[in-house]
Design a protein around this nucleic acid. Structure first.
Ligand SMILES: [Mn+2]
Ligand SMILES: [Mn+2]
Ligand SMILES: [Zn+2]
Ligand SMILES: [Zn+2]
Lengths: 138, 138
DNA sequence: TCTTGACTTAGACAATGTCCAATGTAGGAT
DNA sequence: ATCCTACATTGGACATTGTCTAAGTCAAGA
């Protein structure tokens, strides 16, 4: 059993076949699938899995912090199993490929007090954009 | 006539009543309306304006660089008339208020070469999140 | 004033996401 | 091993956001 499924069971989750396949789809590095992509991949193993179940399971994984939501393009949200180490994203403007990246330094340091409007600032999300090697070559 | 409308006329645009009201709605600082919000405000002045016209006009303003699209929450895109000076956004997690902010330094400097995966990186979009004074007080 | 190509409109359609009542089942209880 | 039942799943209706098109309208130059 994967670490993720074990953690889910420790939380008292029922381990259904549907939750297993969703958890299996969300495994690996640089994985950022949309809900429909997760559904398609899950359905390859468990054809009768419902779209609503995929949405339910993804929402639950997000709410307990095992998966993060990524919105890089204003279209469908993407689901990212790399929730253990905070990171940012590098997106190819040509093909949409997304890579996890780890910038140096504190991203909040660049925002001067005079630019904070009295807010308590707790977090920064950075999306880097550029052209990937394949798109540059093609 | 506003500067924006004058620039549009210089580009050969037909100045229709619909385009005028959309341009008037998109005026001011820290303005980040959704398309439906633009439509509602435009319809207050020109009740028969169609949703499609608002979408068309916004897309055209974006394509010529007079307005930028902002996606801070994975929901509806927001339209920002502050396209002259590049800036980032500070969002209140409580109420959704969005402020324009200007971080110091080059945002690309924080991404080491070893974290670029061979990409040519051209741009970084930063969303800061926190709590605004009203939400902190309330 | 006329003409015409660009603009607007209403509504169908598409993509993404949410909700619900009916049905099924995982896992503890017996 | 079987039963119970609270929780999970299902299919489809519905909501939100955005795109597209055919038909009608009009801004602006001739
Ligand atoms: Mn990631
Ligand atoms: Mn802005
Ligand atoms: Zn690419
Ligand atoms: Zn607030």
């Amino acid at each position: 059993m994967s670490d993720l499924l074990e953690r889910l069971r420790d939380r008292g989750w029922r381990l259904t076949a549907q939750r297993r396949v969703v958890a299996e789809v969300l495994d690996g590095d640089h994985v950022h699938y949309t809900a429909d992509e997760v559904h398609a991949r899950a359905a390859a193993r468990l054809p009768e899995i419902a779209r609503a179940t995929v949405y339910n399971t993804l929402s639950e994984l997000v709410s307990i912090g095992e998966v993060i939501e990524v919105s890089t393009d204003g279209r469908a949200k993407r689901y990212d199993p790399n929730a253990r180490r905070t990171h940012q994203h590098l997106v190819c403007s040509g093909c949409g490929t997304i890579r996890d990246v780890h910038p140096s330094g504190d991203p909040l340091a660049g925002l001067p007090e005079t630019e904070r409007f009295g807010f308590t600032v707790s977090d920064a999300t950075i999306t880097y954009r550029g052209t990937c090697p394949q798109c540059a070559a093609g």
